[in-house]
Computed example of a mutant assay.
Amino acid sequence: MKTDLNIVLVVLMLFLLTVFTILLFHKGRKNYSNIILACYFVSQIIGISDTLFVYGLSVGNGMPIIFYPIIFTWVPLFYFYVVSLFETDFRFSWKHTFHFIPFVIVLSYTVANFYIKDYDIRSQLIESHEIYNQLFYYFGMAFNTQVIFYNLAALVQYRKYLKRIKDEYSEIDHVGNNWLKTCLFGFVIACFIVQFGIYSQRFHVFISVDWFLAGNGAFFIFFNILFYKAIISPNILHRSQIKEKYKHSLLSTSDARKILLLLEQCMDEKHPFTDSSLSLKSLSKMTDVSERNLSQVINEHRKQNFFDFVNSYRVKYAMRLLKDKNSSRRTMMDIMYDAGFNSKSTFNNAFKKHSGSTPTDFKKMNS
């Protein structure tokens, strides 16, 4: 019964991935990230097809064996997809081919230890699953290492992206990138569940659990989230508009000071920070100063990114409201929203960072 469920789930995934790939190449072909995602789905289709061999559905003498090495393209392709989301000018080049060296090594091993053998030996290797045992024994740990390494690299890219976003947005909770972090961890979990299933069968531990079914289910959810975000919500990330920080800036010190004075005057008199969606772009229009120059002035003369710069004003405003006797009956949430915050965690963290105490403690000290 469990095997039947696995077969149904694998066939369903193959069907959906095929549909997803066609739609990505057709509907999303103008988006370079979608093209990479489509290539990733193709590699998954080939790799998952190999699973049917495990359940005895494959035909022919050894053709499915050639599918195994393709799993070593999964993680690099997914990593490149993540990078392409963060870097709008990302394009494949020859320097990226070294990421596929593990695939070439495993493919070479498969050819040398299976395809150049006699027909009878190949048949015996298939029937005994010996070729699979060899591949899992020699390269299973390498695949797990690859998963860990590339996902750590993807998380580093994610952190760099968040740092860039803080140079342009005053509130990052609305940016909508948590799905990507979920996918990064989801991909790792799905891979390890399947690998654990392989080792559990090999060493006869926890065999009462159908790890393949759990892993396939995790991949099924993972694929649907990726496709939904790529096609249904194409603008999944706020891209950084500032390409290279002030590399060729012609902004003089005197002009920078004038901009800083204008900016501080705007913040003090117009209170634009009370708008939770305030961005570098909207503040640029308000002050009639380019985004690039505004960012440079905030970074170099205030020694802050845009996120911290705006939140420092919000905290000062919240502190004034908390000290105001007329605001004594107002809730902390009211003050938080009035100051421009729309997240309690962001409010508490920013308040502690810029005032040295929590909002609650500050209110008690000034009541």
Score class of each variant (00 low, 15 high):
Tyr150Lys: 10
Trp179Ala: 09
Gly47Arg: 10
Asn311Pro: 01
Asn61Met: 13
Thr73Cys: 15
Arg202His: 09
Ser108Arg: 01
Phe223Ile: 05
Pro359Cys: 08
Ala350Phe: 07
Leu17Tyr: 02
Val106Asn: 06
Ile70Phe: 15
Ser128Arg: 03
Thr331Ser: 15
Asn31Val: 11
Ser240Met: 04
Phe220Pro: 01
Tyr81Ala: 01
Leu52Ser: 10
Ser345Thr: 13
Ser200Gln: 09
Ile193Ser: 15
Thr145Ser: 15
Phe222Ala: 03
Arg202Met: 12
Phe341Pro: 02
Asn151Trp: 05
Ile70Tyr: 11
Leu16Gly: 01
Leu237Trp: 00
Leu260Asp: 07
Tyr32Cys: 06
Pro272Thr: 11
Ser249Leu: 08
Ile66Phe: 14
Val19Gly: 06
Asp338Trp: 15
Leu280His: 07
Phe78Gly: 07
Asn366Gln: 10
Asn34Phe: 10
Asp288His: 14
Arg91Asn: 10
Tyr32Met: 08
Asn305Leu: 00
Arg329Glu: 12
Gln146His: 13
Ile48Met: 13
Ile36Val: 14
His271Asp: 06
Gln146Lys: 10
Lys323Pro: 00
Tyr161Cys: 01
Lys258Ser: 12
Tyr55Cys: 04
Phe53Ser: 11
Ser58Phe: 04
Lys229Glu: 00
Val10Lys: 03
Ser93Gly: 15
Asp361Met: 05
Leu52Gln: 09
Asp120Tyr: 03
His129Ala: 12
Glu130Ser: 11
Asp89Lys: 13
Met141Gly: 14
Ile45Cys: 10
Asp324Ala: 05
Ile36Cys: 06
Leu180Thr: 01
Phe136Trp: 10
Gln44Leu: 12
Arg164Leu: 02
Ile116Ala: 02
Tyr40Arg: 01
Thr97Met: 13
Asn6Val: 05
Glu269Asp: 07
Asp361His: 07
Thr360Ser: 13
Ala256Ile: 04
Ser327Gln: 13
Gln44Thr: 02
Gly60Lys: 06
Arg329Ser: 06
Arg314Gly: 13
His96Leu: 04
Asn113Thr: 14
Pro76Cys: 05
Trp179Ile: 04
Phe347Leu: 11
Leu280Pro: 07
Asp275Val: 09
Ile22Thr: 08
